[in-house]
């Protein structure tokens, strides 16, 4: 595979052109661009063969083709560049903390805690079993996990059904789902409180609500737009419906499901913390409000920092998982047309 950049997503690969030459067995060039803002879920698909057998599968979310090939040389070269880039990127972050430190000394007391106090206090709270910060983090994560799991099951199932089997029902259901998607989750919180109280159930229900619509719509959209040529080819080769689903439709749709899940996780984490701030007796958001009530300034800022770090970590974990999925999909793709 030539002309592909490092996996880091930093360099921009020109793209969709598929693979160059009759080089590897895989012969699949993929451009996979995801814009940082994480908004739309448009899946462009180019299916042009270049060379022996190259399937160019452009899965561009920002509409622009970004990096994303995997190549030996590119990776080796990219690692050093990435390191350098990280180092440069860290300088402004350090500067930010430095400015914070200086500013904390100048503003009136009781407004801004300096990072030299915030970070040790947060670490202490995290490790101290009496403070239970770790426990509350786990409670929040469990709520997200449960809600997300339910949302994935329901959303993917409904998305596939609407996208493949019951295409004619799409016009009946989809507008309604879009209405639901547009309903502000903050407005839904009181309604869920009426039904479920303020415990785990309400939080899980809220996460489910926030997650299920993006997952459902992305799945449905992708399932609907599976390349008919692929489906016809598989059918012509005598694939049973189950096999067709397993080997053609599902691998095709999987990256899009993952895009939906990634979007959902972002909103879910945001909403769970917010919901716990509004009304709860456990969880990270509640921990934060309690520190606010106690006016423990270093821990107020510490909680914010920690919650932000958690959000970044979650995003990162899901991006990593997505990349794993993509590699897996590529393997499937390269193996099946190669065998044919």
């Amino acid at each position: 595979m030539s002309g592909a950049n490092g996996i880091s997503g930093t360099g921009r690969a020109s793209g969709i052109s598929g693979a160059g030459g009759a080089n590897g067995i895989s012969g699949a060039g993929r451009a996979n661009g995801i814009s940082g803002a994480g908004g739309s879920g448009r899946a462009g698909h180019a299916n042009g063969a270049g060379g022996a057998n190259g399937i160019g599968n452009a899965n561009g979310i920002s509409g622009s083709g970004h990096a994303g090939g995997i190549s030996g040389a590119g990776r080796a070269g990219g690692a050093l560049g990435k390191l350098k880039k990280t180092a440069i990127g860290l300088i402004p972050i350090l500067a930010f903390f430095l400015i914070w430190q200086i500013a904390a000394g100048r503003v009136p007391k009781g407004v801004l805690a300096p990072p030299t106090k915030v970070i040790p206090a947060t670490l202490g709270a995290f490790l101290d079993p009496k403070e239970q910060m770790l426990l509350h983090t786990l409670i929040s994560l469990r709520r997200i996990g449960l809600g997300l799991l339910l949302a994935v099951v329901a959303g993917v199932l409904a998305g596939f059904l609407l996208g493949t089997r019951f295409k004619n029902l799409e016009r009946l259901f989809l507008p309604f789902f879009k209405v639901c998607e547009k309903i502000n989750p903050f407005a839904v919180i009181p309604v869920f409180m009426i039904f479920f109280g303020i415990g785990d159930k309400e939080k899980v229900a809220l996460v489910f609500w926030a997650c299920v619509w993006p997952i459902l719509t992305t799945t449905q959209e992708a399932a609907k737009s599976v390349d008919p040529a692929l489906v016809r080819a598989a059918r012509a080769m005598g694939a049973s419906p189950a096999r067709l689903f397993r080997t053609v439709i599902f691998p095709y749709v999987l990256p899009n499901i993952f895009t939906g899940v990634k979007l959902a996780v972002r909103v879910a984490f945001f909403m769970i913390v917010a919901a716990e701030t509004i009304g709860s007796s456990a969880g990270l958001g509640w921990y934060y409000t309690r520190k606010q009530a106690m006016y423990k300034l270093p821990l107020i800022y510490g909680s914010i920092l920690f919650i932000t770090a958690m959000a970044i970590a979650l995003n990162y974990a899901f991006s990593k998982m997505e990349r794993k999925m993509l590699v897996w999909k590529q393997a499937v793709f390269s193996e099946s047309p190669g065998a044919a």
């Binding site: 440069i88 990127g89 972050i93 930010f96 913390v273 701030t277 934060y288 107020i300 914010i304 970044i312």
Partner: peptide, 26 residues
Amino acid sequence: SGALGMLMSFLSQIPAYILYPIIVLL
């Protein structure tokens, strides 16, 4: 802008909702 990228994505991840009390404080 390339160098500031990491700082910006760090800042963008701060949930506005929990920032609200701090803004009120200020």
